[in-house]
Design a protein around this nucleic acid. Structure first.
Lengths: 227, 227
DNA sequence: ATATAATGTTAGATTAGTCTAACAATAAGT
DNA sequence: ACTTATTGTTAGACTAATCTAACATTATAT
């Protein structure tokens, strides 16, 4: 079995290669906050184990086996996050750090028990898909709130790169997974949008915020201002 | 904070110094399945951190600080075991290996949440006391089933050194924590005892088995064969 | 197209945790 | 009390994961 460190490299590679085949060593170095030569030698090691494709001075990628292993770690991470929220009463902004540790626990029974007790959830508390036991990962939502049309009626479906700061911000705004949102106006100057939802009649969300929120469209236009 | 390895040494020391001040390096070596020179150098390291008392060629012991740290790890271990049994439906024979990993997770919120959700349990699933947040450990039960008198009525209170094999054996015999047992006869030859309990009208338990079972006395004599 | 910047590689050092081999001190047994 | 056995120590090597410094290659920009 891969060491915790190796697992973290695999997970990082999976995350960085999301809709983009190749990853560079410096991207990995940056992501993991580890120096280039360290990454370089670890990558050679993973290549030797058949987990990554790599040739000197070339970008690297996960092999099918590497991708599978990475997805199974991600599965453990996301199952844990969901368990912490659903069964242990943590907030969605508190669970990442704990799951980061729990994901390395070596016990399939432990994670299968979580999965069963939650009734095989499809996503983690931030709306990201939980890979299945074979390492298959459902496609993530592709549409962001920043791309929604004026007048559309959408549902908050997932959060990307949800730091605990951002998630706490969403808590203060009472924006949760599943919240139905009306897009009232789009300000062309700074791409901020004004919205209404639940018992919030008027809120302005910056482009930065809208870009981190994935949505499902419920209705293209509810105001009559079609198109 | 101590590394996982250091934590394991501290935990081993606590366990070996249960009712016995001093521990030798070879006892530790044996217990941890690690060679003497390795233990020797780790002990020096722990001494430097003020966690153990140690002088060349002398037996060692935990300092108050070392004992406290060890007890807090034991707390995390036992809370986890109890949580796995109570909230996740594991058998008492399955939880040790998982808890051995979970105990190193660095998140007080995680363990405090477990504790709250179980209503602050006093013991783990094997009847061993869970140390409190300050590292205080309640006295373990001292009386073993092997010391019970003929005719006494006792309750199974705890299991010591409960390997999963032994715990599975108890499962097959339907002997659980809390089971009320009548001590029918004590065979002087091999110190085996015959007992009745629940829907088991007659069972013979070897001395080896009885020696690993801690009891509480419910009644010194129920048969009239007083004393 | 050549200089400069960015990225990647190699070499060598460091720390944690482990080992074996050789030696030293303490304990045990007649 | 002396020999032997047990236990403990030191020295030196190894692997994993990290680092810095120096150098090499590839990409970028005028």
């Amino acid at each position: 079995m891969a060491s915790q460190t190796e697992e973290n490299y695999l997970k990082a590679l999976l995350s960085l290669s999301y809709n983009k085949e190749d990853v560079t060593i410096s991207e990995l170095s940056n992501f993991l906050r580890v120096r280039l030569p360290t990454v370089n030698s670890m990558v050679k090691k993973l290549k030797k184990q058949g987990l990554v494709n790599y040739e000197k001075y070339r970008p690297l990628s996960l092999t099918p086996e590497g991708k599978m292993q990475a997805a199974l770690i991600l599965r453990k991470h996301r199952l844990t996050e969901m368990y912490l929220v659903e069964k242990m009463g943590f907030g969605w902004e508190e669970v990442h750090e704990i799951a980061e540790q729990v994901e390395h626990i070596n016990s399939s029974a432990f994670f299968e028990r979580m999965d069963e007790q939650m009734g095989h959830p499809a996503t983690d508390p931030h709306g990201s898909p939980i890979p299945d036991k074979n390492g298959n990962i459902a496609l993530n939502k592709q549409l962001r709130l920043s791309e929604a049309k004026k007048g559309s009626h959408v549902r908050l479906a997932a959060i990307v790169n949800g730091t605990s700061e951002f998630l706490s911000f969403l808590n203060r705004k009472e924006l949760n997974l599943g919240t139905a949102i009306n897009v009232l106006e789009i300000e062309p100057f700074d791409k901020s949008i004004s919205v209404s939802y639940a018992n919030h009649e008027f809120e302005i969300l910056s482009h930065e915020v809208c870009n981190r929120i994935y949505i499902e469209i419920l209705d293209e236009s509810i105001t009559g201002t079609k198109q």
